[in-house]
Structures are given as structure tokens and as C-alpha cells.
Nucleic acid binder design. Structure first.
Length: 430
RNA sequence: GCCCAGGUAGUGUAGUGGCCCAUCAUGUUUGCCUGUCACGCAAACGACUCGGAUUCGAAUUCCGACCUGGGCGCCA
């Protein structure tokens, strides 16, 4: 019976493992094979004089990264990695790997990201790459667990939609029988409909699609968004949920992924401390004005240079709050005492924006007014506006970029490294 | 979409007009080697993105195409 490599100890006696041939060191009368599975690496040692002909033939024939089944006695040896080695009486080639390999799994020679993504299945065999996705999995697990625990209902909303009701970003048109259709840019409107449906707290973790032709290390055309919406909550309440979720995610990764963090050579993993500073937009602009050369004025978006300047000033996660209504979407709730600013916020990591959200406008007539103010036609928003006419509770929510969360958490240079099969302007395969 | 930088063995690189039938590492193959752990040693194999131009001569200069990386714009 095959057992995980990590569980092989000197006490195992006779053990059978399956995995990839990681490295071969043939010293002549003695040969070492490193066999790797997802749990670790074990040294298989062949003293040639005392090894069967069948084992020697297979060992001679096998190529790097072939899948093999090896069984034999486990011996305690200080000189071997992990303090044990396996002396095989069985060495079976299950699946021979072609040569040459598209990239070097052992990492003696680096590979460009492009090369790595072209051969992602091989790239992901590298422990440090696998570690990123194990951490991502842990993060998604604890986020689901936290939201479930907080009473959120997990929903799934359509990714094929009829029209671009939100404006702003470009959508991908798709062929949908004989109708016009698009890939959805966000579950925003559907989350809000579920507030009208009385679900009170909903969340969705799913793909979002943006057809922007950007070419940066932090944008993708297909991303994973963690979205929540909460009835009877204001922006303060959902910011609190967001910061608690971020902290819990870091804590969980910190306590359950120590092997993965050390694979990534992260020795200074810092769990952020709540509460995160709430920086009013107007103060953010003042800081940016002092710190960057490019002109920036109240009413402008926060440019990447301004983001970086603020990031180094703030030093950790922080919120930008009280945005001018003018530069936020129509569904962001304006302050009653000063409608020029609204109850919208962004959650920032020092490197980039992670999340944005707001208390939403829940009053039908105010929403129509806001849509008009943005120069949009309320008539084309009928499917969105309808729920607001039949009893819509006040509500607030946010969307958090899962890929950026992972990227910033483990310090990846490029968001593509946090995604198994990233989709950008140039990459559609694999 | 705009701007900048690139494209050389399977992989990662050196090479700015002749010194290049192209450097180094890794890999692969063969030989030697009984404690390696990036094993070592020896030998061999393997590449200038494509098309056009300039030149006695182009990996190197110019033009075009394609591809890649990055920045900006855009990103409710």
C-alpha cells in the first residue's frame, strides 16, 4: 500500500511510495534517487552489488520526472535527507517522462513566468509553487468558514448576463444563441437583489470578467472575487467584517501553513492588527500631493504612484473612506449631511487596492436620481431598479479580490503567480 | 490603447559589424566513480523568432510582422 512520503520514518519497516523522480545521483557502485510526492522527498539508495537486476534495469532506464513506484526497507541514516532512506526491492516505472523537460522542476535554472505558465502542470510540481496554491486553498477555506459562521448564505449568481447595466468597465460579449450577452463584471446587482429577497447576509466567491486591455502585474481579465452584502448594515459594519476576515485569514494561514510559508522562504509573516486606519479620501489626497511629483487634486482617482506613496506612509492595511460621490458608482450612499461625499471605501494593502465597497442606496427614488446624475438612463436599469420598489432593506457590502489577497499575503511579484491558469490580454492557453 | 525594454540550445544566459561554423550554467548521451545531498571528473549533443534592406561581411545596424516582459492609461 502506498503511503505519503512525509509519513515514512525509520520505524516504517517495509514501505511503498509513489512519486516523481526528482533527482538522480549515480556514484558508480552506489546511486541515489530522490523521489518526490506532494508531501515531501525521500532518498532511495541503490547499493548496486546488493540490488536485484530488475530494480537496476528500471533505475537505469528511468528519466527525471517520471512517475515511479518504489518499495523497500526503510533505514535510519543520519546522512540522508529526513534522517531515513529507502533501499528498494521494487522499482517500477509507472509513467515515463519525455526528455527534455519544458522547464527545470529542480530549479537549478530559473524559468520565465511565461515559460512556467505554458507548462503550468510541471511548474506546479515545484514545492514553492504548490505552496502558493495550498496557502490559497487554506485562505479560501477559512474565508468560507468565517462567513458561514457569521451567518452568511453562500449564493451563486449568473456569469452570463444580458446587459452592461453598471457602466464603467468593458465587458466581454459572448455568443448566446441569438441574443446579445456578456460575461458579468461583478455579482453586485444580484447580491443586492438577494437583500430584497430577505437573505440578509449573502456571499459569493466566484469569477468576474473585465475586458480592459491592461498590461500590468496586478490586473487579470478573469479574476476571483469574494463578495458580500449585508442588510441593515452600514459601511462601518461591513468594514469591520472585512478587516476581521483579513485578520482571520492571515491568522489561519500563519498557524496552518508553516511548511508552505517556509517553502516560500517567508520567515517574517506578519498578521495585521485591527482596527485598520480609516483614512479620509481628502487626507489621502493631501498626503499624495506632498509625496509625489505628478499633480493630483481632490476629485481625482488615486493613481498608482499615489497608491505607492500612501502605502509607504501607512505601512500596513488601511481603508480610504469618504470618497467624493462624483468618482464612485451611483449605488454608493451619499452622506445625508454632505451629499458631495459618500459612504464608500477601499481597502488598501501598501502595494495596491484589495477591495472596495459601500453602503448602498436602498431608496428607489434616490437611486433613480443618482443614476440620472451619472448621465445614465434609468429606463435601461429596470431589471435592477425593480426590487427597490417592493421593500428593500438598507444594506452595505464589498468585493475583495482573492488573487490580490493571496498575492499580497505571500509577497508575489505578479498576480499571475497566484492564479493557476491566468487569463490576460495575451494568454488564453492553457 | 500609448510608451519603454526585450526575443540566442529543452531551460536560464554572454555576446553592440570580422576576434562567433556563437559564451557559460543546467540538461541529455556515453565513460569512470560506494555516502551523494546543486555529487565529482572526462567527452559528445543541442540555439541566433520570421520576412525584407544596408554592407565585402549581420546574432549585432535599419524597416516590417509576430511574440514576451514592464510602466502608464483604463479598471462601477
Amino acid at each position: 500500500m502506498r503511503i505519503p512520503i512525509q509519513s515514512v520514518t525509520p520505524e516504517s519497516g517495509h514501505a511503498e511510495v509513489c512519486g516523481w523522480v526528482h533527482e538522480v545521483r549515480d556514484l558508480g557502485g552506489l546511486a541515489f534517487f530522490l523521489i518526490r510526492d506532494r508531501t515531501g522527498i525521500i532518498q532511495v539508495t541503490l547499493p548496486k552489488k546488493r540490488t536485484s537486476e530488475a530494480v537496476l534495469t528500471a533505475a537505469k532506464q528511468v528519466s527525471r520526472e517520471s512517475v515511479v513506484r518504489v518499495a523497500g526497507m526503510v533505514k535510519a541514516i543520519d546522512k540522508a535527507p529526513g534522517g531515513r532512506e529507502l533501499v528498494p526491492d521494487v522499482f517500477e516505472i509507472i509513467s515515463m517522462a519525455d526528455s527534455p523537460l519544458p522547464l527545470d522542476v529542480v530549479e537549478k535554472v530559473p524559468a520565465d513566468l511565461d515559460t512556467r505558465l505554458d507548462a503550468r502542470f510541471l511548474d506546479a510540481r515545484r514545492p514553492r509553487v504548490a505552496a502558493v496554491f495550498q496557502i490559497r486553498s487554506a485562505a479560501m477555506h477559512v474565508i468560507n468558514q468565517y462567513l458561514h459562521h457569521e451567518g452568511f448564505i453562500n449564493i451563486t449568481t449568473p456569469k452570463i448576463v444580458a446587459a452592461a447595466t453598471e457602466g464603467g468597465t468593458d465587458l466581454f460579449p459572448i455568443a448566446y444563441f441569438n441574443k446579445e450577452a456578456f460575461l458579468n463584471q461583478s455579482p453586485q446587482l444580484y447580491k443586492q437583489m438577494m437583500m430584497a429577497a430577505g437573505f440578509e447576509k449573502v456571499y459569493e466567491i466566484g469569477p468576474i470578467f473585465r475586458a480592459e486591455e491592461h498590461n500590468t502585474t496586478k490586473h487579470l481579465n478573469e479574476a476571483t472575487s469574494i463578495d458580500i452584502e449585508v442588510s441593515y448594515a452600514d459601511h462601518h459594519e461591513v468594514m469591520r467584517i472585512l478587516e476581521e476576515l483579513i485578520v482571520k485569514t492571515y491568522e489561519y494561514v500563519n498557524t496552518t501553513c508553516s511548511d508552505q510559508l517556509s517553502s516560500l522562504e517567508i520567515s517574517d509573516f506578519v498578521v495585521p492588527k485591527p482596527p485598520f486606519p480609516r483614512l479620509p479620501y481628502c487626507e489621502a489626497i493631501e498626503i499624495a500631493k506632498k509625496r509625489i511629483e505628478d499633480p493630483i487634486e481632490y476629485g481625482d482617482d488615486i493613481s498608482p504612484a499615489a497608491e505607492r506613496a500612501l502605502g509607504s506612509e501607512m505601512g500596513g492595511h488601511y481603508f480610504i473612506v469618504n470618497w467624493p460621490s462624483e468618482i464612485r458608482p451611483y449605488y454608493a450612499m451619499p452622506y445625508e449631511n454632505d451629499p458631495s461625499i459618500c459612504k464608500a471605501f477601499d481597502l488598501m494593502h501598501p502595494r495596491m487596492e484589495l477591495s472596495s465597497g459601500a453602503q448602498r442606496v436602498h431608496q428607489h427614488d434616490l437611486l433613480v436620481q443618482q443614476i440620472r446624475k451619472k448621465g445614465l438612463n434609468p429606463e435601461s436599469f429596470e431589471f435592477y431598479l425593480r426590487p427597490f420598489r417592493f421593500g428593500m432593506p438598507p444594506h452595505a457590502g464589498w468585493g475583495l479580490g482573492a488573487d490580490r489577497l493571496v498575492m499580497t499575503m505571500v509577497g508575489l511579484a505578479n498576480v499571475r503567480e497566484a492564479v493557476l491558469f491566468p487569463r490576460d490580454m495575451h494568454r488564453l492557453v492553457p
